[in-house]
Amino acid sequence: MKKPLYIWACCISLWTAVLWGQEPPEVVADSLPSAVISPPAAPMALRFGVDLYHLVRSQVDDDFSGFEVVADLKVYKDLYAAIELGVEDRTLQSEQINFSSSGSYQKIGINYNMYENWEGMNNQVYVGLRFANSVHEQKVNNYILYKNNPLWPDVPVENGFAATTYPNLNAQWLEFMAGMQVQLFKNIYLGFSLRLTRILSQKVPENFSNLNIPGFNKVTDENIFGLAYNYTLTYRIPFRFFQRKNKKESTP
């Protein structure tokens, strides 16, 4: 897991630097005290984008291919409805078993922004909740049988027996997350989120196990908690017609 870790560690430093570089716009005092107009509430906006981790890792890792799109919509003051959709095909060596998990996942939920933006800016530090579902299959590519002091040399089983595809599986889980969104340019944002995940239910393959679930990542035998993350680049489309009209007016 060294390469991808290095890539997004670099990206986090870049993005932290951008966050520090943000400056508030100059406030010009108006000589006429009569005009006191509060700025319009930030317009409703739809943001959509891609997860860069999937994009980058698909290029550098032969055992990984996937794509994730993200979107969020501002529904109230600091509340955003969010969705992530992804597909993933990942090959892993887990102890004596080499297997591939492939499928799609859907995550839907809300983000709550805790960050107080300076005027005219739209960064976020948020916490969020997701409900996620995956539809996937497991494929055991090869494995070495567990033997005590065997007489014969270990030959991996590659065809037949348990080296087969286990289709029509699914899993549902919850995600508790924290993340950030940083405005890079006018409508372009860079985001990162870290999620603590907890499995609610899963359809387990017969004679195998959901060792890895697309969107959830590694599933441990005894623990139903996991860790997931994404690293996104999004574009914001402002919706003008959702903009609330400013009613406050100056009193002469």
Binding site: S94, E95, Q96, I97, Y143, I144, L145, Y146, K147, V157, F161, A162, N207, F208, S209, L211, T220, D221
Partner: peptide, 15 residues
């Protein structure tokens, strides 16, 4: 005849 049975993540399969 042989059948491979899954044990767990750590042990894998036995026959």
């Amino acid at each position: 005849d042989r059948e491979d049975v899954y044990i767990n993540r750590a042990c894998g399969y036995r026959a």
